[in-house]
């Protein structure tokens, strides 16, 4: 993470599109009128969805709509790294995971692919279509190395598959998200080597446990014999 600043070049104005404004209004309506500032994160997110990044006029607009000081919106926008404060690639914005598991599994090689095909991190390619950045753990370590491209995870990547994905994006295709090693999700890659004992699954290995503090079962009492 580095010092986060708003981009130097900013558009003149920002306005929510009709759809995003409707969504924004839905978020605002979720909270009591006096607490509508609570919608600041969803609204920043909507502004980012609409324009690709959070623009300075959007910060002003959100502050205006939520009747909160503009510095408070800026605080939130700069706090969360998920808010992009500078333009990103229009076709594909790659967030490459560079944390330890991914790095051990070859994230550094993926980085050189990105550097070669797109350019240095945090800069948009000349055609405006691509940009990339390295992020901290995205929580898909089982499928390392991985990258999030736009809204989806692309997992089990190799330099070749990542290059292919980028080429596909450049060609206007929509590459399939998910594992590029043929895995369904995060199941073991090859033969299953652990937890193979069938006893684990038929219930026989289960120990009887006593759950503490259960309410006592009502004792069956014999009906008193009639006198």
């Amino acid at each position: 993470m580095s010092v986060r600043r708003l981009a130097k070049e900013q558009p003149e104005s920002f306005a929510f599109s009709k759809e995003s404004q409707a969504k924004a209004d839905w978020w605002k309506a979720k909270y009591p009128a006096a607490r509508k500032q609570s919608a600041v994160i969803p609204m920043l997110w909507l502004a980012q969805k609409q324009e690709g990044w959070v623009q300075e006029p959007a910060i002003q607009e959100i502050a205006r709509q939520l009747e909160m000081p503009v510095i408070r919106v800026l605080e939130v926008a700069t706090f969360y790294v998920m808010f992009q404060l500078a333009p990103v690639g229009k076709t594909a914005f790659v967030q490459l995971c560079g944390t330890t598991p991914c790095q051990l599994r070859g994230a550094l090689d993926l980085r050189s692919v990105l550097e070669k095909k797109i350019g240095p991190a945090h800069s948009v390619s000349a055609d405006g279509k691509f940009s990339w950045e390295e992020v901290e753990c995205l929580g898909a370590c089982c499928n390392a190395p991985m990258a999030a491209i736009n809204d989806y995870y692309y997992e089990d990547l190799t330099p070749e598959s990542l290059a292919q994905i980028l080429d596909d994006f450049a060609a206007g295709k929509a590459p399939q998200p998910g594992s590029y090693e043929g895995r369904k999700s995060s199941e073991p890659k090859d033969k299953i080597q652990t937890l193979t004992d069938p006893k684990l699954y038929d219930g026989s290995a289960a120990k009887k446990i006593k759950i503490p503090n259960l309410p006592e079962k009502p004792k069956k009492t014999k009906a008193e014999p009639a006198a």
């Binding site: 993470m1 408070r72 605080e75």
Partner: peptide, 19 residues
């Protein structure tokens, strides 16, 4: 007049006015 804020986070936090 809320004009000063603490932006960014962690090691990078900075006290600033809006722009």
């Amino acid at each position: 007049s809320p004009e000063i804020g603490l932006i960014s986070r962690g090691e990078d936090v900075e006290i600033t006015t809006y722009l």
